[in-house]
Amino acid sequence: MRTGTQARKYRLQGAGLDLALPYLMLAPGLTIVLGVLVYPLWDGLRASTRAYRYGSPVADVGLQNYLHLWSDAQFLNALWVTVKFVALSVSFEAVLGFALALFCLHEFRGIRLLRTVLIIPMVITPVVVAIVFRLIYASDAGMLTALSKATGGGEVQILGNPLNAFIGLVALDVWEWTPLMFLILLAGLQSLPHEPFEAARVDGAGAWRVFADLTFPMMRPVLAVAIVLRTIDAFGTFDQVFVLTRGGPGEATRLISIYGYDTAFKFQQTGYAAALFVTIGLVVLALAFSAIRLLRRVDAS
């Protein structure tokens, strides 16, 4: 039996803990988020408004770094190369991934093994993939050259030719990331309701009709999510290019990530690089929001 004073004390302690406990429980997570996400973001924004010399800030320059970007031929070239790379890679990956997902929807002997094999490229470390592709593309001792010479041809020039190097980079990306599209779209296809398809079959609809009138419209939200995710990811492509071409020949494969990296760490223009990455971050965010809004509008209509 508690006395009145004891009961009051326990009640007060309980009330105090009840109030503080949620915050105490949240504190570690919140501290980590502030430390690794909010602070670096704020620090990056602050850096983007400063001029750096020899790795240290020397002056506040306001939005000058942001304005300078649009007269920097190297930045504009890198942006254009990145946009081309993202558009081509993601388009190919979406089409191929969708085709593979449709094919692997069917159940037949060995399908489980095939589905597993198809996702192997995306689980290989990107740097390793780039090294392997370098060994394939090298004009002196690469596999393509060896194959060409074995069939009476000459050296195959991939990495020394701007167009071929760019196509080679897209091919690498498509090889590595089509499986991600395939996986997302296969999951989407498997979750579609059976009834509309059965009804269409009963009505005698052909495969194309079913695809055009049912599968594709029903898959559009999943497809959009997959494309948005891959687009955001492709904008950040770095390691494959770093190993395969380092942005060359010339500037043919110099993506914005490589230019930003060099600017920040090799040339020590920290403020300018911060402005570059903030700008690209905003562009990607804008693209993502636009895609989502477009998707909602299509759904609503």
Partner: peptide
């Protein structure tokens, strides 16, 4: 030089 020297 070798034809692929651009990438060497």
């Amino acid at each position: 030089a070798p034809s692929g020297v651009v990438e060497f």
